[in-house]
Design a protein around this nucleic acid. Structure first.
Lengths: 240, 240
DNA sequence: ATATTTATGTTAAATTAATCACAAACGGGG
DNA sequence: CCCCGTTTGTGATTAATTTAACATAAATAT
């Protein structure tokens, strides 16, 4: 039952679909499509129409019976939901390969995400610019973040340096960490959000799926085989 | 009910957890830990012990009552499941910022993923090397993939070139596409697996979560407000 | 104006995933 | 050798998510 001040929790599954809606609605807008139904969205996005309607209804009633959704209105609403109606300031921490690549990428600013500084401990890099963004010494990180109201820290440091950088970030006004390190970050009871991009996990998942058909055969065979048991002195071989 | 030749389908949720198990077991091995219980794994990984046991039981009985799991044995089993007991050959397609960063990254080879070639349409890049990996003209892509038994194509081309490259890839012996483009790839009825790394989606999800508390307030307010309806001639303003 | 069609918002049902709970099996200690 | 504590594998339960169904409202056609 819903209480007066109750906060309705939106599931992560729904949240992960929002960017897809947003991106596709952007495409439709560029094509000057004025209206769209959940069924039409369904065809392209691969979700059921029912799911799309239910997803959107977590946030409001944006559609209309007999009409569907107004593309640009829904686009704007989702932009609000995603919090991208105002710009976000980001800093990249770690000017290695990936950090530089992200700094060079121009696709973020279209959505209002601006990288305004890069931090590195390497004195040879400090003072240079990447894509017109200056590289600063990592010592100045906290001061810079607070001074410039930076929202998001893009973390591309080596694994061993992650923990110490994260600790330092918890003492800043940063709101979110976009984590490209392989380290699992957990920040206790502070309102900093962490979003992980674990590339290795993604690659291993791909490998699993490539391997899947072979694996299924192996599993079936294994089921018919006896299985050795035991680690210690009482170890026996038994048949299931 | 299970049929003789039935293929047991493992859910994506389980698959996505496998790399976490794998990585943490690797850490334990390096620390020379010999055995581990589902409860101990639970504490670090943040999944319940029960879930861990059930996840692993999708693939076999790797543990033992009263003992737990043998770390190195379980590590090996998960490596088999993930299909990383043999090496994988990869090519990077698109030698832009991201493509170059991935080519420079050394972390893949530890898990048996070797980038053996980079392809680009830019003649100024062709012939150069990145991290000792040669850049070839994109025209040679298909031939190279088939000749060298390349398993995985890492796709880092601009959005407009994605479709044509994917079409060309479907005519090769490639097994998987690791897609870094923002394009949603769908390949019909061929056994090529696509794993997406949609960075923008990830960033937008982060933005949502940063924005979440503000959003909840807005949703509560909105509930108490009347809502204008209508798009056409019968449009009325109504109170819910 | 009216009827017909379309397509939403929403409740209910079905499916899928996570957690609980416990019998059975093994290791370790005396 | 036997008992006690531990911990798995697994069936049962609960929770979460997805899909289906439909009453209702608006648009469109006549």
């Amino acid at each position: 039952m819903e209480q007066p001040g109750e906060i309705k929790k939106v599931s992560m599954a729904v949240i992960k679909r929002l960017p897809k809606y947003y991106k596709y609605l952007g495409e439709l807008m560029r094509k000057n499509v004025e209206r769209v139904s959940s069924q039409e969205l369904s065809k392209i996005l691969g979700f059921t129409a029912s799911q799309i309607r239910q997803d959107l209804n977590n946030f409001g009633e944006f559609g209309q019976q007999g009409y569907g959704y107004n593309v640009s209105q829904l686009y704007t609403e989702i932009a609000k939901i995603l919090g991208i109606t105002t710009n976000h300031k980001m800093v990249v921490i770690g000017a290695g390969n990936l950090g530089q690549a992200l700094a060079n990428y121009t696709g973020f600013s279209i959505h209002g995400f601006d990288i305004i500084g890069i931090f590195d401990k390497n004195p040879n890099l400090v003072g240079r610019k990447i894509n017109d963004i200056p590289i600063y010494p990592v010592e100045d990180m906290e001061y810079f973040i607070n001074k410039n109201n930076v929202d998001i820290a893009v973390l591309t440091v080596p694994r061993d340096e992650t923990e110490s950088i994260v600790n330092r970030l918890t003492n800043t006004a940063i709101r979110g960490i976009w984590n490209f390190t392989p380290v699992e970050i957990n920040i206790e009871d502070r309102d900093i959000v962490v979003e992980n991009v674990h590339l290795i996990d993604s690659l291993l998942t791909l490998s699993y799926r490539i391997n899947e058909s072979w694996l299924q055969e192996r599993l079936l065979k294994q089921k018919r085989k006896d299985k050795p048991f035991g680690h210690g002195k009482n170890t026996t071989y038994m048949v299931k």
